[in-house]
Amino acid sequence: MARADIATEGAGPAGFASVAGAGPRGMVTLRGDLTSPVLARAVAAVTGTGVPARRRIEVAGDRAVAWMSPDELLVLVPRAEAGAAVAALEQALAGEHHLAADVSDARAAFTIRGPGAQGVLMKLCPVDFATLAEGEIRRSRAGQVAAAVWRSGADEFTLVSFRSVAGYVIALLEFSARPGAEPFPA
C-alpha cells in the first residue's frame, strides 16, 4: 500500500503515544457569511450543531463543524455522507453567496492518543498546548506542513492535514512519538 494511504491504515509502531491514521472522513469546506441565519440552519440540518464561534469546533456524535477562518467552516460527516452533505448545503443555501466543496479526498485525519499525546505534538507545532481549550481547533503547522488539531477526547488529539502530505505527517508523528523521545521523561 502506498505510504500516502497511511491515513486509512491502523496503528503504527509502538511509541510513547499511539499514532495512527483516523480512517476515511467526510470533509466538506463551507465558505460564506457565518453570521447568516440561513447558513446556520443549513449547518444544523447537516450536522445537528450550531455554527461554531471563532476557533471552536462543535461536535455531535460522528459529525462536527469547525471554524477555520472568518468565512470558512469545515464540516465533518461520515465519509459515505459527504456527497449528500454538499447537496444538502447547496440546496439550503441556494440564493446565498456560498461555496460548499467535498474535500474528503484532499485531507487526511490522524489520531494521537495516550498520556504522551500532547508531548508528541508539542515538538511539531508552534502551539501553546497548555492553553488549547477543550472544543478549540488550532490551525497551525506540523513540521513543514499546514495542520489543524483539536482535543478529540481524554488524552487524545485529532490532526487534519492535506492528503498529499499524509505520508510526511504520519512519519513525522511516528518519529516524534518514538520510544525515548518523550519531552518530559518520567
Partner: peptide, 12 residues
C-alpha cells in the same frame, strides 16, 4: 486580528 491566535513568526 482575524482568528485571535498569537503565534511565532513561522506560522505567518
Amino acid at each position: 486580528p482575524h482568528c485571535g491566535v498569537t503565534a511565532e513568526e513561522t506560522e505567518f
